[in-house]
């Protein structure tokens, strides 16, 4: 009705008005959603510190998100480092500066690839299952059951996961970096014959503490984003239009992974531009 009215009054072609309508509606929806996520994060984060401290649950989540990702992160780190060593060597050797290989591998891992790839791997391994687990709890009324027992579901389900992510992401990133550098060493030094001493000396010379803190800050930001998005998507599975029951959970899991991945990459660019 309103649409028809504005069309008649404004004199703009209806397709343009429809476009504006579409734009406005979706912008409002996105802003609303962003606000909801922010509030969700605020409470989830706040309840980490509420007493009695949920030590056991946080440890369980550290085990699930962290320890169980140990192997996959090591594997990916190793091969990423190896391929960096390989590619780096063939590029650097053209300029006769293959001695810089150590620095190239270490810097790209610590500043960029470590935090980003670790975050992406955790999203795939733990983020999806967080969304699915909370989503199933929602559709099988387990979250309602917590509510009726006067157990705060945000505190019980979301806070331990956010806390565990804050602890685990930087640690796994550090692991990724170290194993990646070892991978670079394997291809560069062991396979292609770069001098071992020069390899490590260049790393020692070029990596400064700012690089490490930068990587650390990134992984911390990714931890907050990923845990919040995955929990949020699962927690509000039932509010999702067009998906009920198992379908709703599958949609929630997909959105959790897609949105987290996109946000990690966007945030990575934003943070890098500030940190440089």
């Amino acid at each position: 009705m309103e649409q028809g009215g504005s069309q008649a009054n404004s004199g703009f072609p209806s397709s343009f008005v429809n476009f504006l309508n579409f734009l406005g509606k979706n912008s409002l929806k996105i802003i609303g959603e962003l606000g909801a996520v922010a509030i969700f994060f605020f409470y989830g984060f706040l309840f980490i510190f509420s007493l009695p401290f949920q030590f056991k649950k946080i440890v369980q989540q550290i085990y699930f998100i962290g320890v169980k990702s140990f192997l996959i992160i090591s594997l990916i780190g190793l091969f990423t480092g190896m391929v960096l060593g390989l590619q780096g060597y063939y590029t650097l050797v053209k300029f006769g500066s293959e001695g810089m290989l150590g620095a190239a591998v270490a810097l790209s891992l610590i500043r960029e690839l470590g935090p980003v790839l670790t975050a992406l791997m955790i999203i795939g391994r733990a983020g999806s299952s967080i969304a699915a687990e909370i989503g199933i709890m929602r559709i099988s009324e387990q979250i309602d059951a917590l509510d009726t027992m006067d157990i705060n579901p945000m505190r019980y389900l979301v806070s331990p996961r956010i806390a565990a992510s804050i602890i685990v992401f930087p640690m796994l990133t550090a692991l990724f970096d170290v194993i990646g550098i070892i991978g670079g060493y394997l291809t560069g030094v062991v396979l292609l014959g770069v001098n071992s001493g020069i390899f490590f000396n260049r790393i020692y010379d070029s990596v400064v503490s700012k690089d490490v803190t930068g990587g650390f800050l990134k992984s911390l930001a990714f931890a907050l984003i990923v845990s919040t998005i995955c929990c949020y998507q699962g927690y509000f599975t039932h509010m999702r239009p067009g998906g009920f029951g198992a379908k709703g959970v599958s949609l929630a899991t997909t959105s959790a992974v897609v949105i987290s991945c996109v946000l990690v990459l966007v945030l990575d660019y934003v943070l890098t531009s500030f940190l440089l």
């Binding site: 387990q142 059951a145 006067d150």
Partner: peptide, 20 residues
């Protein structure tokens, strides 16, 4: 509200047991 909630129990139709 909290006190009221604490004074009651709810048994769900689908049981709503925590499956983990």
């Amino acid at each position: 509200l909290r006190e009221f909630k604490r004074s009651l129990s709810y048994m769900f139709q689908q049981n709503a047991l925590f499956d983990s």
